[in-house]
Simulated scan of single mutants.
Amino acid sequence: MTYARNLIYMGMLTCLGLILTACDVANNNSSETAGQASEMDPYVHMSMRRIESPYEYVLDDIKNAIAERGIKINNISHIGNMLARTASDVGASKQVFAHAEAIEFCSSTISRATMEADPHNIVFCPYIITVYALPDDDNITYVSYRRPTPVGSPESQASIKAVEGLLEAIITAAVP
Score class of each variant (00 low, 15 high):
residue 98 A to K: 15
residue 92 A to F: 08
residue 145 Y to A: 06
residue 31 S to I: 10
residue 148 P to C: 00
residue 125 C to W: 04
residue 75 N to T: 12
residue 146 R to C: 06
residue 126 P to K: 01
residue 36 Q to C: 04
residue 28 N to Y: 10
residue 90 V to Q: 13
residue 137 D to I: 10
residue 67 A to G: 06
residue 145 Y to G: 03
residue 65 A to Q: 11
residue 176 P to R: 01
residue 176 P to G: 14
residue 10 M to Q: 13
residue 120 H to G: 09
residue 56 E to W: 10
residue 147 R to S: 03
residue 71 I to P: 08
residue 153 S to Q: 06
residue 96 V to S: 12
residue 94 K to E: 15
residue 88 S to G: 02
residue 116 E to A: 12
residue 63 K to Y: 02
residue 117 A to K: 08
residue 59 L to H: 12
residue 1 M to I: 02
residue 8 I to N: 12
residue 164 E to C: 04
residue 123 V to E: 02
residue 138 D to K: 15
residue 143 V to K: 01
residue 42 P to I: 07
residue 89 D to Y: 14
residue 134 L to N: 08
residue 137 D to F: 10
residue 42 P to H: 07
residue 72 K to T: 14
residue 60 D to M: 08
residue 103 I to D: 04
residue 45 H to Q: 05
residue 173 A to L: 01
residue 145 Y to S: 03
residue 58 V to G: 07
residue 173 A to T: 07
residue 64 N to S: 14
residue 165 G to I: 02
residue 115 M to W: 09
residue 159 S to P: 04
residue 151 V to K: 04
residue 73 I to N: 07
residue 44 V to I: 07
residue 29 N to Q: 11
residue 109 T to E: 14
residue 104 E to D: 08
residue 105 F to K: 02
residue 81 N to Q: 11
residue 2 T to H: 14
residue 19 I to G: 00
residue 44 V to L: 00
residue 71 I to T: 10
residue 20 L to I: 07
residue 69 R to T: 03
residue 120 H to P: 00
residue 48 M to Y: 01
residue 101 E to T: 03
residue 112 R to G: 01
residue 11 G to D: 05
residue 51 I to F: 14
residue 149 T to E: 00
residue 71 I to M: 15
residue 103 I to Y: 08
residue 113 A to K: 10
residue 59 L to R: 15
residue 20 L to W: 07
residue 109 T to A: 13
residue 138 D to T: 13
residue 119 P to C: 03
residue 150 P to T: 01
residue 130 T to M: 05
residue 125 C to Y: 00
residue 113 A to M: 09
residue 14 T to D: 03
residue 17 G to M: 04
residue 118 D to L: 00
residue 134 L to V: 11
residue 63 K to D: 01
residue 167 L to H: 07
residue 95 Q to C: 08
residue 61 D to C: 09
residue 115 M to C: 14
residue 173 A to C: 00
residue 26 A to W: 10
residue 39 E to F: 02
residue 158 A to I: 03
residue 73 I to T: 14
residue 38 S to C: 04
residue 147 R to T: 04
residue 150 P to R: 02
residue 49 R to N: 12
residue 62 I to A: 05
residue 62 I to D: 09
residue 21 T to E: 12
residue 11 G to I: 06
residue 33 T to W: 14
residue 4 A to T: 12
residue 74 N to V: 04
residue 161 K to G: 05
residue 74 N to T: 03
residue 136 D to I: 10
residue 106 C to A: 14
residue 70 G to M: 13
residue 140 I to S: 08
residue 156 S to F: 09
residue 132 Y to H: 15
residue 95 Q to N: 11
residue 107 S to D: 15
residue 160 I to E: 02
residue 86 T to I: 12
residue 60 D to Q: 14
residue 141 T to L: 02
residue 162 A to C: 00
residue 18 L to E: 13
residue 5 R to L: 13
residue 27 N to I: 10
